[in-house]
């Protein structure tokens, strides 16, 4: 089961029995992920050729457990130094580099995965959990485990006494924890059987990257389901910087002020002889690149028939 959720293929240094371990390296300008090990179950060793149940054991995360994280460009870290430290601590390398030791969460897990293959992102995941009205004690069936990015969030939502049953159709993929969009199975094939397994008024969600899958799914769903709604969720992130805008030296014409797009220089340029001063402020703007599409989320509620 471990290979399913482990995404770096380095060898283990220490064997840690069934605990969650996640280490994220925080660089100067954001996240840099060096290593994550994420074992999801405590005692059992389920395999993915049959459905298995997954718990996220948040309560146990007071001892940092890390393996395979030995060195990055900022130096070598001694793992024995880390054990027993509280979460949130900053630990140093032999060269003075540092990492923060963070308690793992499904979001960190998803963040780690987002550097790799196609997965469900946090906006989709959050919306699915909310829309399916998953609360502690729910029993959830997930078809298409993929990278496990949704699974961990589902598990968090049903804890402590619910269950998530998850399975994947692709043997190698279940092992490698990848999932690529165009090769998804046809969701409409699973819907009639889903209808049989569900309790009355239960909600189903189907994630499809292409609109044709949505069109076909919606047609199929009409038989047993109602309140069929399709959504798309995207996330825009903003970058924040401290800077200032030039207020110009307009009337004199005595200081060369041609401003071609030299962004780096602008805030340090002196504007002499004007009564306008440019104060430094915090400025935010959307990041220029974003995920333009993840998939369509189709929800449907099983009809009340009795």
């Amino acid at each position: 089961m471990k290979p399913h959720l482990q995404i770096e293929e380095e060898e283990e240094e220490e064997a840690i029995r069934g605990r969650l371990g996640s280490v994220k390296y925080i660089g100067d300008d954001g996240w840099v992920v060096n290593f994550v090990n994420f074992t999801t179950d405590f005692n059992s060793k389920p395999t993915f050729d049959k459905p298995c149940s997954i718990y996220v054991l948040q309560q146990y995360l007071t001892v940092i457990l890390c393996i395979n994280f030995r060195a990055n460009r900022f130096g070598v870290f001694k793992h024995s130094d880390w054990i027993g430290k509280p979460f949130g601590s900053k630990v140093l390398s032999n060269k003075g580099g540092f990492v923060y030791l963070l308690a793992p969460t499904p979001e960190l897990w998803t963040l780690v995965l987002s550097h790799r293959t196609q997965i469900l992102y946090i906006a989709d995941i959050s919306f699915v959990v909310m829309y399916l009205e998953i609360v502690p004690g729910c029993v959830v069936l997930e078809s298409g485990t993929g990278s496990g990015s949704l699974t961990t969030s589902l598990a968090r939502a049903v804890a402590p006494c619910g269950h998530v049953y998850t399975f994947d159709f692709h043997e190698q993929r279940a092992a490698a924890a990848k999932f690529s969009i165009p090769d998804l199975p046809q969701p409409w094939l699973t819907m009639p059987s889903a209808a049989k397994m569900l309790k009355q008024d239960a909600v189903l969600c189907s994630f499809s990257p292409c609109i044709e899958q949505v069109q076909r799914s919606c047609e199929t769903l009409k038989k047993d389901f109602t309140d069929i709604r399709t959504f798309e969720v995207l996330l825009r992130t903003y970058e924040v910087k401290e800077g200032s805008l030039d207020c110009g030296n307009i009337n004199k014409g005595d200081s060369p002020q041609s401003l071609p797009c030299k962004r780096k220089q602008s805030s340090s340029r002196s504007s002499n002889g004007t009564n306008k001063s440019s104060a430094t402020t915090v400025m935010a703007k959307p990041c220029s690149e974003a995920k333009g599409h993840t998939g369509y989320l189709t929800f449907a509620r099983l009809k009340c028939l009795y």
């Binding site: 609109i211 069109q215 399709t230 959504f231 969720v233 995207l234 996330l235 992130t237 903003y238």
Partner: peptide
């Protein structure tokens, strides 16, 4: 704090009907 980010979700609902599918 670390992992700081400002995000804004964007939600769109679709009408899915034969020959009439659009946001």
């Amino acid at each position: 704090a670390v992992g700081l980010q400002i995000t804004e979700p964007w939600l769109r609902e679709y009408q899915v009907l034969p020959s009439r599918t659009h946001p």
